[in-house]
């Protein structure tokens, strides 16, 4: 029979899980609201907000914008962040530590502070409301995530394998392609995923550098909810919840299959 403290611990875990899930569980029923209101609990049932999301150009455009920007950011930040991780891991210990501290500042500095700086520079360089502007800003925010994920893999990577590969006849690029990259791939992939998500749901910087002609999905959600309490927001939220859940489940499945190495 489980002891009293075990039961208590179980209940506590359940409570924390509920707390973490609560906002999501509120959003899902709201997305099927029959009325145009964000009241909870919702009244009636309808698919109209989903319909609105897929047909209203305000929503479709901002979604496409976010997707394109996040994909570019994922690629750029993963390449740059992986290279940075190599530099940090393989530099002398002291230099590496300093570089690392420098490279993860975007994670530490408050988003608003960064946003002000970026906005000021973008005004002068006419990057406000451009895809380039978004990609640059989001890449900067995403690099620390890639750096940390890849570095964690590189630190346990046995460099003697590279020496062995070289002795077997592999040049430096071949060593990277056939030995190093496959072994740090989990870190690179999770770095890429983090980079994508960082960009996709970024709102603070986006609010500063957005323009009526280029809105990302979070900006669209924010303006929509502050202006007319549109339950489409809840539909978007539910869709995103579903999408991320699927990605994470897929990631876990791939992870177990690769667990051998």
């Amino acid at each position: 029979m489980p002891s009293f403290s075990r039961i208590l611990l179980g209940l506590f875990c359940l409570l924390v899980a509920l707390l973490l899930l609560a906002p999501t569980l509120v959003v899902i029923p709201m997305s099927f609201n029959g009325n145009k209101s964000l009241a909870f609990p919702p009244v009636g049932f309808s698919w109209q907000w989903y319909d609105n999301f897929f047909t209203n150009p305000d929503w479709t455009t901002s979604f496409t914008n976010s997707l394109i920007i996040a994909l570019i950011v994922a690629v750029v930040a993963t390449v740059v962040g992986t290279l940075a991780a190599f530099g940090v891991t393989r530099a002398a210990a002291r230099t590496g530590g300093l570089l690392r501290a420098l490279l993860i500042t975007p994670m530490v500095v408050p988003g608003v502070v960064l946003a002000i700086g970026i906005y000021a520079v973008y005004l002068d360089t006419h990057l406000v409301g451009t895809v380039t502007g978004f990609v640059l800003a989001h890449t900067m925010l995403a690099i620390p995530f890639v750096l940390i994920a890849v570095q964690a893999n590189l630190e346990v990577f046995d460099r003697r394998l590279e020496t062995a590969a070289a002795s077997l006849g592999a040049g430096r690029l071949t060593v990277f392609r056939t030995v190093t990259l496959p072994l740090i791939l989990p870190g690179v992939l999770s770095g890429a995923l983090f980079a994508f998500i960082t960009s996709f749901d970024e709102i603070i910087v986006a609010l500063f550098i957005t323009s009526p002609y280029l809105k990302t999905l979070p900006v669209q959600i924010y303006t929509s909810i502050t202006r007319d309490a549109d339950p489409t927001v809840a539909a978007v939220g539910t869709l995103l919840f579903l999408a991320t859940s699927l990605i994470i489940i897929a990631g876990l499945l791939i992870g177990t299959r690769r667990g051998r190495t």
Binding site: T163, A164, S167, G169
Partner: peptide, 14 residues
């Protein structure tokens, strides 16, 4: 080393 065509066996197998 990759052009020397020498076999190497390491202590830690590699």
């Amino acid at each position: 080393s990759h052009k020397r065509n020498i076999g190497v066996v390491f202590q830690h197998y590699a």
